[in-house]
């Protein structure tokens, strides 16, 4: 899922400073799962904003709403007829959500409350770890389902650098060396042969081609 973290209050406050009527919109999908933009976080942020305004003697009107998914128009539509009663939308969606909401309401200013961080996995409650960089050219099949692009600090395709020691990465001793994992897993699976192969340079054009990437599934598209 896509993970995100709330921006520092100072940044949010600065962006909101000129506005009095604020619609705080959460997203019930990924960011709810990583506890940064769901209904609860919307409640907390709204409460904090109201208090902040009170402390400064300002009066603001904050409305809280959380929609199922901020990146799908059908759900964003729930804001229609409500959004225009506010001066600004504070979105607790990922970057995609913020932009989708903005697209639906062309005249409204939409600002993000979150920093979208990565595609990750919930390791344990309260711990999310990045494990995919959406490179568009998945090679996990050769690397025993450990992504070197994401999980090796240098994105090495052909074995660990010289900094790997005791199974951890020299860049972040709290992270396992991705290559250590790859090697172990391939050895366990009896596929050490894959370790001897030289992998050619990656095709990064799939990740950053011409503007935003698109996927088209013709069978899923509707006629109308």
């Amino acid at each position: 899922m896509i993970t995100a973290e709330r921006k520092p209050m100072a940044e949010i406050r600065a962006m909101l400073a000129p506005y009095r009527k604020i619609l705080v919109v959460g997203c019930g999908s990924c960011v709810a799962e990583c506890a940064s933009g769901g209904e609860k976080e919307v409640g907390l942020l709204a409460s904090a904003l109201r208090m902040d305004a009170k402390i400064e003697g300002r009066t603001i009107e904050v409305r809280e709403m959380t929609i199922d998914r901020q990146c799908v128009y059908e759900f964003i539509d729930q804001l229609t007829g409500i959004a225009d009663r506010y001066e600004i939308i504070l979105s607790l969606g990922c970057g995609a959500g913020v932009q989708a909401v903005a697209e639906v309401f062309p005249k409204m200013l939409v600002i993000p409350a979150l920093n979208t961080t990565f595609i990750g996995e919930t390791k344990e409650p309260g711990l999310w770890v990045e494990n995919c960089r959406a490179c568009g050219d998945c090679k996990l099949g050769y690397f025993a389902a450990v992504c070197p692009v994401t999980r090796c600090a240098k994105g090495l395709f052909n074995g660990p650098c010289g900094g790997s020691k005791n199974g951890v990465c020299e860049v972040d001793p709290d992270s396992p060396c991705a290559w250590q994992l790859i090697i172990e897993r391939l050895e366990n699976a009896g596929r050490s042969d894959l370790l001897e192969a030289i992998y050619p340079p990656a095709d990064w054009s799939r990740q950053q081609g011409k503007g935003p990437k698109k996927i088209v599934r013709e069978d899923q598209r509707s006629e109308g």
């Binding site: 074995g159 660990p160 650098c161 790997s164 020691k165 199974g167 172990e184 370790l195 001897e196």
Partner: peptide, 13 residues
């Protein structure tokens, strides 16, 4: 560096 046994493989590569 670790893993030790892999260092020669990497040299070979």
């Amino acid at each position: 560096a670790d893993p030790f046994d892999y260092r020669v493989v990497r040299l070979a590569k």
